[in-house]
Design a protein around this nucleic acid. Sequence first.
DNA 1: AATGAATGAGCGTTCATTCAT
DNA 2: CATGAATGAACGCTCATTCAT
Lengths: 209, 209, 209, 209
Amino acid sequence: MTDNDPVPNSKKTTVITAPDRRRELLATAAEVFAAEGYNATTVRRIADEAGLLAGSLYYHFDSKESMLDEILSTFLDELWAGYDAVLAAGLGPRETIEALVTESFREIDRHRPAVAIYQRESRHLTGRPRFAYLAASQRKFETVWLGTLERGVAEHVFRADLDIRLTYRFVRDTVWVAASWYRPGGAHSPEEIARQYLSMVLDGIAVRA
Amino acid sequence: MTDNDPVPNSKKTTVITAPDRRRELLATAAEVFAAEGYNATTVRRIADEAGLLAGSLYYHFDSKESMLDEILSTFLDELWAGYDAVLAAGLGPRETIEALVTESFREIDRHRPAVAIYQRESRHLTGRPRFAYLAASQRKFETVWLGTLERGVAEHVFRADLDIRLTYRFVRDTVWVAASWYRPGGAHSPEEIARQYLSMVLDGIAVRA
Amino acid sequence: MTDNDPVPNSKKTTVITAPDRRRELLATAAEVFAAEGYNATTVRRIADEAGLLAGSLYYHFDSKESMLDEILSTFLDELWAGYDAVLAAGLGPRETIEALVTESFREIDRHRPAVAIYQRESRHLTGRPRFAYLAASQRKFETVWLGTLERGVAEHVFRADLDIRLTYRFVRDTVWVAASWYRPGGAHSPEEIARQYLSMVLDGIAVRA
Amino acid sequence: MTDNDPVPNSKKTTVITAPDRRRELLATAAEVFAAEGYNATTVRRIADEAGLLAGSLYYHFDSKESMLDEILSTFLDELWAGYDAVLAAGLGPRETIEALVTESFREIDRHRPAVAIYQRESRHLTGRPRFAYLAASQRKFETVWLGTLERGVAEHVFRADLDIRLTYRFVRDTVWVAASWYRPGGAHSPEEIARQYLSMVLDGIAVRA
DNA sequence: AATGAATGAGCGTTCATTCAT
DNA sequence: CATGAATGAACGCTCATTCAT
């Protein structure tokens, strides 16, 4: 969960606004942020893409930053809903990793722009108070994944001869960086990509001797 | 690709000579570009960090973009020098992959900011004529890595049951994304990180049945 | 040549409408360009004079250069409309020269700043593609005036003992350089100035023997 | 005379400097000022043209403005030396005008860049105290030319039916604007241009009835 | 005399944001 | 809800000028 993010309908002036329009505008903004980068994206560009004037966006949103905020927190909310469901199932370490990876590729499929933005911008955003939930999410993420890996090593299903933090970074990075090349509706479904990915990570690409 | 001359310190005193000053400023710029992103970095920020005024940078460089250009092309020149040496050795597919990965981590060690910048900016830079070499490098990169993987599959040293392009992306990302967390002088040497990564990628993290 | 639309004041109130605002700003810019020179004029100076901030000019115009472009092309469009009407009348050489000179002084009356800018800047502008129409106008101008003078010599209404190109330059400069001192609403109307100039140029200032 | 201009060798630091180098640099500067305009000319451009670095010009001159000053005042000094010689000859009005015009074209021949600069820049320079001599020269110029024309009208050698101030501006402008197209070593000598010019101005271009 | 490197003010321009209509 | 016009801060960059060497 994103810890401190405002519930979507907490904005007082826009509560009456059709939430569909809002979602629509955010989707447009996310697409542009992902394609061009947050800083390089002008509010005018988003407005152009959405078919209104730059100033008009401010009827719907407080600021460019609040759009980014809403995009990222919405994504993280969903991500953690999925992760939490996996964790609640009480699976073994290997099965947990498999389920988390599959869930992650499903999130990339559903929120590709948000994931791409997260990858690109989260590092220099975590400092700002408004985005404190990014750091919180990152910490929880590490706890979950690293914990599962450690449990796997303890239960002898994962190798003990590897630096566990290195392994964690390895898995974390390779999963999420897929958002940079993944295109929904491509050759492979998220589940198929997860299957192949897990096969590589768990068993390696070398032919067994 | 670049024409900064590498004439060594020819003055007898410890006075900072011209090419050194250039390198020094580029190192500062690269550090800031990597930390903040190219677009978000102001030329004043680079100047502050380097201890001079913004306008003074233009005595040494034509533009902010030309600094980026020089950083990236210098890095790629060195990277390809290393890769070409590996390829010239005529190793088998597995040994070639091992040598390329090791060389890559060495480049990350030497050019961490440049690698981080490359990761973050190359996508939207490849369009511009000035950065055409980025696309060329990317193509050559794919040829080399994908070719080696295919050779490995043909020679039965790499698994044949995986989507080879997916494997390529996986390996490629695995290596370069490490630049986002790697810090020179940390717990592991580049060679040690390469060894662990190769062990994961080649043999998997799961305990063998 | 330009696409500023000349829709008249369509609002019922005295509120300044958009095309008027544009014209107003261009008039201000032209006045300052004429007084200080294009290069020496800062966009802030124009904005000050017009009562807004420098950046706000960019809501109305793409660039400082596009203001210059619009000023010059608007002027030349009108000038050629006038000239073409004269030429279509099929007058004799002397009457054509008289009508062209009179028309020219009327243009100076209506577009004094534009004429002054044209005089001062056209030479180093003609190189740029955007201002190619300046060179085209200049060529057409020479064709018309030189042709009329030559016709006059052929028809024995102008002297044959003078270098015709020298005469052309002399007459051309005579007319346009007046923009540097002419002030609308001064002692003489454009038509009166044209009459006196024509008297001088055609008959000379010396008392006839 | 330029009233208040400093005698060339009054600069304390440069009195020992070879005056040839100084003249050479000023000639280069004048050429560039004339071609590009004073404001549009960078000190670096002058230095490039002269084969040294921008900063080195400051060994020879106090400032860019002082180069302009020296160029203009040198030109005006020579111009007035010539004019004063003409005036001292005590000729009749027509012969005085003829001699002044001839002298003017000779000055254009010798000081074309300076004349062109004068034409283009003097208007917005006359305000500054340093260039007060420009206004003084202009006043003296008007006194001499307008006076001679008036004397000619009084003595019935020039027409009385023309506005005398208009005539003055007419002659003044058409003479000096020649600097904008005159090229030394061209088809006509200054004296030949003066002869043709005088023939036009005095007798007109129309064939006498 | 000239260089190399810097200063500091200012330039044209961009852009997130505001607000009366 | 949206527009049109503006604000104001900041940006990349230029350039006359300075000065130790």
